[in-house]
């Protein structure tokens, strides 16, 4: 047992760096290119230089497959990994609603009914206590929106 696991301020930290998040960041799901992609977009976080490319295979307004490439911190990589897990098989409209719910989750104090639809995305809830890191968690989601819009320009986390 490590001593830091007992110290107060590190307890909060474990809410952010949960085992599942560390796992996703070290072994991301759907990591790599997607040759049959019909949509893709690039996202950059100019604050830290993180970049991410998201690929989607969309048929009849349903996301059949998704994958991503790039490098980023544990939070942004885990978030991208969880995003691909949760949007595959969803319709475009469902994916957009998921984005709204996710955004609510990590930026607002209130719990909402929409939290139910988030599934395992809920483990990223701790990010809301780290305002400087919210952009890490949303990079993949902004990139998803851009991919759905088929943006030619990379999106950035800076509005």
């Amino acid at each position: 047992m490590n001593d830091y696991q007992h110290s107060d301020s590190f307890d909060n930290l474990f809410e952010l760096y949960q085992e599942v998040i560390i796992d996703h960041s070290q072994h991301p799901h759907h990591f790599g290119a997607l040759p049959q992609a019909t949509h893709h977009a690039e996202g950059v976080n100019p604050l830290c230089g993180d970049t991410l490319t998201l690929y989607l295979k969309i048929e009849n307004a349903v996301i059949r497959d998704a994958a991503f490439q790039g490098h980023g911190c544990a939070i942004s990589t885990a978030s991208a990994s969880l995003l691909t897990d949760s949007i595959i098989g969803k319709s475009i409209d469902e994916a957009k609603r998921l984005f709204e719910a996710f955004h609510q989750l990590i930026t607002s104090e209130k719990e909402t009914a929409a939290d139910n639809m988030l599934g395992k995305l809920i483990i990223l809830a701790g990010v809301k206590n780290y305002p400087a890191r919210v952009k890490c968690a949303t990079l993949a989601w902004h990139t998803l929106q851009a991919a759905l819009r088929q943006d030619a320009q990379p999106v950035t986390t800076e509005a």
Binding site: F10, L13, L16, C48, G49, G72, C73, I75, T77, Y130
Partner: peptide, 20 residues
């Protein structure tokens, strides 16, 4: 990643710069 280091060190009271 440097940003994760930055957040964790902050909890140790240590302010460093991370990024490009």
């Amino acid at each position: 990643h440097a940003h994760d280091l930055g957040t964790i060190l902050d909890h140790a009271g240590v302010a460093i710069r991370t990024g490009h």
